[in-house]
Amino acid sequence: MTIKMLCMGATALAMMGSAAMAASTSGTSALDDPAKMSPFFTDAGMKTMKSQKDFKTAWMAMKPDERTAMMKECADAAVKKAHAKFCAMAKKMGG
């Protein structure tokens, strides 16, 4: 009975742990958040970026820790590929 309980406990722990890890790695990026990204785009669908001047204005209006967080996300290969134009422009801004 004790071994059965230990096995059940280990199985439950493994299932909860793998679900937590999956949620943390497949969670959405801050670069997918319309509220954070709308200042950088001209349209609601976030397809057309603003001019470099307007981008810089929006970039500098952000808190330094928010800019750092976005640059860290741009360092992720999958995120960088999905948001290539944004990441390239952010890098030009000194990120």
Rank of each mutant, 00 (worst) to 15 (best):
M1N: 05
M8W: 08
G9L: 03
G9W: 00
A10I: 13
T11H: 08
A12V: 12
M15V: 15
M15E: 02
M16N: 09
G17C: 11
S18P: 00
S18W: 07
A19F: 06
M21D: 07
A23D: 03
A23N: 04
S24P: 02
T25N: 11
S26L: 11
A30V: 00
L31F: 06
L31Q: 06
D32K: 08
D33A: 09
D33M: 06
D33W: 02
D33P: 03
A35I: 08
K36D: 02
M37P: 04
F40H: 06
F40R: 05
F41C: 04
T42Q: 14
T42V: 12
G45C: 01
M46D: 05
M46Y: 09
M46E: 08
T48L: 12
K50C: 07
K50M: 09
S51M: 00
K53E: 15
K53G: 12
F55S: 04
K56G: 10
K56P: 05
T57E: 14
A58V: 05
W59V: 07
W59F: 13
A61W: 03
P64R: 01
E66K: 13
E66M: 13
E66H: 08
T68F: 05
T68Q: 09
A69Y: 00
M70D: 06
E73Q: 12
E73H: 02
A77H: 03
A77D: 08
K81F: 03
K81W: 01
A82N: 01
A82P: 00
H83I: 11
A84G: 13
A84P: 10
F86R: 12
F86D: 09
C87K: 05
C87L: 07
A88F: 00
A88G: 08
M93H: 12
M93Y: 09
M93C: 14
G94C: 08
